[in-house]
Design a protein around this nucleic acid. Sequence first.
RNA 1: CGGGGUGUGGCGCAGCCUGGUAGCGCGCUUGCUUUGGGAGCAAGAAGUCGUAGGUUCAAAUCCUAUCACCCCGACCA
Length: 572
Amino acid sequence: MRWSQSYLPTLREKQTEAELISHQLLLRGGYIRKLAAGVYLYLPLMQRVIQKFSDIVRDEMNKAGALEITMSVLCPAELWQESGRYDTVGKEQMRLKDRHMHDMVLCGTHEETVTKLIAGEVRSYKQLPLNLYQIQVKFRDEIRPRFGLMRGREFIMKDAYTFDATEESFAKSYQGMVDAYFNVFKRAGLDVLKVESDTGAMGGKAAHEFMLLVDTDAGEEKIAACTKCEYAANVEKAEVKDSARPEIDTELRDKETVDTPGAATIEEVTAFLKVDSTHLAKTLIYMADGKPVAAMVRGDRELNEIKLKNAVGAVELDMASEEDVLKYTGAPVGFAGPVGLKDVQIVVDPLVAELRNFVVGANENEKHVLNVNIDRDFRADLIVDLSTAREGDLCPKCGGPLTVKDGIEVGNTFQLGTKYAETLGAKFLDTEGNEHPCIMGSYGIGITRTPQAALEKYSDDNGIIWPKNIAPYLVELIPLQMGKENVVEAAEKVYKELQEAGIDVLMDDRQERAGVKFNDADLIGMPIRITIGDKSLQQGKIEMKARSAEQVDLVPVDGIVEAVRALAERIN
RNA sequence: CGGGGUGUGGCGCAGCCUGGUAGCGCGCUUGCUUUGGGAGCAAGAAGUCGUAGGUUCAAAUCCUAUCACCCCGACCA
């Protein structure tokens, strides 16, 4: 492609709307433009990146035995009502009415659609296993779209769905997809970590996320990873085993209510009572589908709302309002405790359950209770892990110390079990003639998110440094003096040779000064830069440089194709 | 949805407090010079100040409403 004939609107100045480097670079490099919050247009360079990454994904999916199809984005609301997700997914779903005032949705995922398809067609175990995928636009009405392509309301995703007859068969299908995912990300130049995750609104049995570890603000996910073994999990999922257990008293002391004037927060209470935060339990009041829940975690721990939500089986979980706290505890926010609580479900973290003689709120303004003990002073309706994993916790697998890292979720895999197959009727007959629901899996890769995520890792002060397999072009060719015939001639020759050799090349044939071309080349980030200038051309040489390297090689004009191939071999 | 902020040529911004119908840098067009890391000079084109209403002789500037966008939080398939 010739620059003069393409549409590459690079920008010199910083774009204030972009916080992340990756977002900034995509805007400045002329890759994307914003139409509305979380809605982007993909310009020619971005289109090529999407194409390259999609090709890799498609290739690996096909190798894994998946079949490409395209399902409709538009979907009647009835289907989602049938699966029960019309209510649970709620506000994240783009909804509209057609001219007949029928409720429709714009799909953010396709479990319903694909299961409906199968339900109508698959009758026998002989038709299984089945693996279907598509690469397509998705809609999600995010509360707060941000970070460019990282969290958009419209984006492109590869989604795949497997249907199996037996657990053994499903395990094979699932593993096949996991393997394919590692291949995809590796080919895109990305090291990813597979972590255990919560199943969220997808439901199902187990799930994994594929994380690109970053040390920037772009990491929206926190990952707890063991330093000794392979264990890694999203902190929303990671089971907590605490390393800093407080000393446990052997005998139970008498409970005592004390005044704690002005002390409502953990810091204030521990300072006032001169106790360690590990000897105190905080009681947080939540409303789970309209019913009050008191969640107790140790004073030094953070409550994990996802764990609480799962524990009580709630669809909607919100922190209780000040009025509700007053209504159910009889005290303002800051003094809730389990003792004497009525009509409120009490859920207790195991780290609290093992404490003795601890401090809790008294359900009275500016009062706390000392020496409280579970069972003697209050009953727990449920004892379940509620804490968010943190640095220094112990690995649930091997007991080694955990570290917490930031990651960007670029892919996920869900073991759905038979949930959708049952509600939507995807059933088959086995060899005995008995009917069973299909065992399903669903698998996503963010096609537009992943390349931007890659830029969080691959850039420098001057711009983008694309991994070679997802770069729009492998080579950018820069003729320096467009006014000199020998330069233009040599450039045309090299351009033609590279193209004939099947190498993607972008030639900056603009009538611009060297500085402009070099700066733009660094900004848009093609892996290899070839410079053709009058000086070196006098000796029959042209310059070749990897975007990621400082070093410039002088190579003969004639051997350029081989030189490019050799260099491409050496870079990521 | 709660809190904070911003809307002024294509991009980045000043002007607003102390009303008098718009300015700077980059980019764009033309010409001359320059030509290996974002050139110089000269001449140009382009905005009615997010939108609507109000106050006033007069509104980018003051008031009200509304829309959009950004940031923090909650949410996240």
